[in-house]
Design a protein around this nucleic acid. Sequence first.
DNA 1: CTTGACTCCGTACTATGGTACATGGTGTAC
DNA 2: GTACACCATGTACCATAGTACGGAGTCAAG
Lengths: 154, 154
Amino acid sequence: MASDLKIGQLAKQAGVNIETIRYYERLNLLGPSSRLPSGYRLYNRDAQRRLRFIKNAQALGFTLHEIAELLNLRVSSRARCGDVQRKAEAKLAHVEAKIQELHALAGALKHLIRTCRAGQPTEACPILESLEQETTNMARASSSSLRPGDKGRS
Amino acid sequence: MASDLKIGQLAKQAGVNIETIRYYERLNLLGPSSRLPSGYRLYNRDAQRRLRFIKNAQALGFTLHEIAELLNLRVSSRARCGDVQRKAEAKLAHVEAKIQELHALAGALKHLIRTCRAGQPTEACPILESLEQETTNMARASSSSLRPGDKGRS
DNA sequence: CTTGACTCCGTACTATGGTACATGGTGTAC
DNA sequence: GTACACCATGTACCATAGTACGGAGTCAAG
């Protein structure tokens, strides 16, 4: 079909690296719909949609692992929309928790910045001193990374 | 001195893994203040403070690399408190940008969740459909991870 | 003096999401 | 018919922050 793309064309269309597409294939996220006799990968419209799906879901903060689950839900005939909804809700809770954490972090940083008088030598720097304290009111920037190793896309 | 700890005691005191302490040593973040003739590492009060510093700074969202810079600022006699302040401000800007991003993400997720009617089979799931769209109003969860590979501590 | 806990070092492995490179085959335009 | 872009595979490498493990040496209590 005319809509079948080779890997380089697909990569360009989606704005990703060729290697990334083959990386997704290794993770069983996205395979070619067919191959030329030479072995060249071909991607039809479905595959192109699938790659968009991956990229959009990534933009929503889903990990590749979670995206694989979402894609499997789509295929499974027994899966319900509610299953997807629950995953989205879990992710939302995760995002909102992370926002709270970061607010606490920002507050602690602001506090430190306020106490700092720029001219002092660093032996007397209140920021550094506070970082040495045993018991801090430091934001306990706890766990729950949203997407570990997050690179995102600009 | 009585306050010198062996690596296992320091690890327990700080609530970290022994291997983590030796990992910090490899990164030139935290070395033993001395060694027993047997080669056992010993950590004095300064080293204990230094480890707290690392953990507190981590809790504020600094990477180990940035923490190394902060520790160097503390040692350098030419460094000024303002240098530290600037680093804290840069980190704050980073944190606040990340918060904005996550807000956009949360909004997009909420929107998707609202449009979902749980009983539907997944072929008709509006969330999955929207993820396939070419042009989405998806949050462009762009770049700027706060702390890549973030594991944090609970 | 033996047992068990602790420590040493070096290396490999984990997760996450890619990127890079070498070596060789393919496809096509001129 | 040859040059050049493209693609194949496999493997290694990047950052980040650790964790795990094997084999050997050490320390303290009984």
